[in-house]
Design a protein around this nucleic acid. Structure first.
Lengths: 242, 242
DNA sequence: GCAAAAGTGTTCACTCTACACCCATGC
DNA sequence: GCATGGGTGTAGAGTGAACACTTTTGC
């Protein structure tokens, strides 16, 4: 890290961007936010929201700013976490562009409204990332596919699923998050016990929610725990569990 | 990501480096590789091995090259994985330097020998990262502390522990890895069953290893599985498990 | 035989799953 | 009452921790 000044032929400057993998649940589907590119390269193609990091700005601050600018979303109430850096020499035709991908998870986020760049933003089903329906700019297809798998794994070991719920939520709401993301049904009674036996996962508010029909459901909010102990493992076809 | 050219006042170029968190087991201790800095800033202080990424080089290739240059280690046989990007504006007094940290795990690596920069390299006990014994350059203390916690978590959910073992190893060798990294004793018989019941974790070679005293032990090599299913959870004081 | 370490068996408690059952609400 | 969904109970299978026991080597 010492001598990058003396050998600028081989090293050279690079440009730093953040790109956002924003997931939410809408209509019982996992959705990802995309923007349509307005400039070359990849003009007109869908891409991850993102942009350059400014001087004197941390990566996280840059991600929060882009969240507001490109997606019209106030990031202060959603979960934001770094996924990784992507910097392959050929990934951007304009030169060495390093992008740091961030994962953002939020409750049923609004349809992006006009404003700055948000007019070009739209929600797409996350399933389309894996079935070949979508073709994205740069290496964004690969990044988002990794992000999607990370989400599926993350809700096993952490309380990340609560990030998809509103401030208060019923256990049914939380269960729906798991069912949609894992695409598998979960037994309501056993799910209930698992969650409540995992200390710090959720805490009861004391309030109730009245469904259109049926018994009222207790409301909860996120607990203080983030790492789940024990984790909430999804059923797998492979592996030694039934 | 479109318009970074037109607003160079606020954006500006950055410099891209990779830094390495290299862990190994030596004398039943988890050790981390450090180098003594030969230049300002932080002249004379210990730091992570690392350096700038060259043009037309992927991050991974840069990490492998620095592994050879700064640590004298052939990276082809050890586990290498990206940890994350660090780019806080103040982290390097010379300007915006983005570093991508890589985690490298290997079996009892040799003491670094003279060569290029490797003469300044040395192994330090990983425990010193957390007890205040060490003071490192830049934000390397924080990066390595995160890396250490990541190692402890990683061997729960993945077969990363095998990366600390040689090509072939006994179950005792593998158990020692867990015991050292988690700093807790594990029951040999139960450990044995857990490992062998986790399909694809290890596979028997058919050979044996003869200990100085005692019954010969079967030798194994890594299996094809990376994600463990079920995971191998360490005992925690908190949490709902006994 | 003795010591040491590998490897097996067994017990007991706890956890997980499936599913029956009861409870609280709107109509 | 009936339908609907929340919430509890329970039997049986499975898992995990503790530890006794057997096996294989060197001396």
């Amino acid at each position: 890290m010492d001598d990058w000044l003396k050998d600028s032929d081989e090293v050279g400057p690079s440009w730093l961007t953040v790109d956002l993998a924003i997931f939410t649940l809408r209509d019982d589907q996992l959705m990802v936010l995309l923007v349509e590119r307005g400039l070359d390269p990849f003009h007109g193609m869908p891409a991850m929201p993102g942009g350059y990091v400014q001087k004197n700005e941390t990566l996280r601050d840059g991600a929060l700013r882009e969240l507001a600018e490109e997606a019209g979303i106030d990031g202060s109430r959603l979960h934001l976490e770094q996924l990784g850096a992507y910097a392959d020499p050929g990934r951007d035709p304009r030169g060495r562009v390093v992008t740091v991908a961030y994962l953002a998870l939020g409750p049923d986020l609004p349809a992006p409204v006009g404003g700055t760049d948000a007019a070009r933003a739209f929600w797409a089903p996350a399933a389309h990332l894996e079935d070949g329906t979508l073709t994205l700019a740069f290496d964004h297809q690969a990044i988002l596919t990794e992000a999607l798998e990370e989400v599926r794994r993350k809700i096993e070991y952490t309380a990340a699923a609560t990030a998809f719920c509103a401030e208060t939520f019923t256990l049914r709401d939380l269960r729906t998050v798991y069912q949609v993301i894992w695409d598998q049904q979960l037994d309501p009674s056993n799910f209930r016990r698992k969650i409540l036996n995992t200390t710090g996962f959720v805490q009861p508010t004391g309030d109730q929610w009245l469904p259109p029909t049926g018994r009222p459901a207790a409301l909860y909010r996120r607990g203080q725990a983030w790492l789940l102990n024990p984790p909430l493992l999804r059923a797998t076809t492979t592996g030694s569990r039934g």
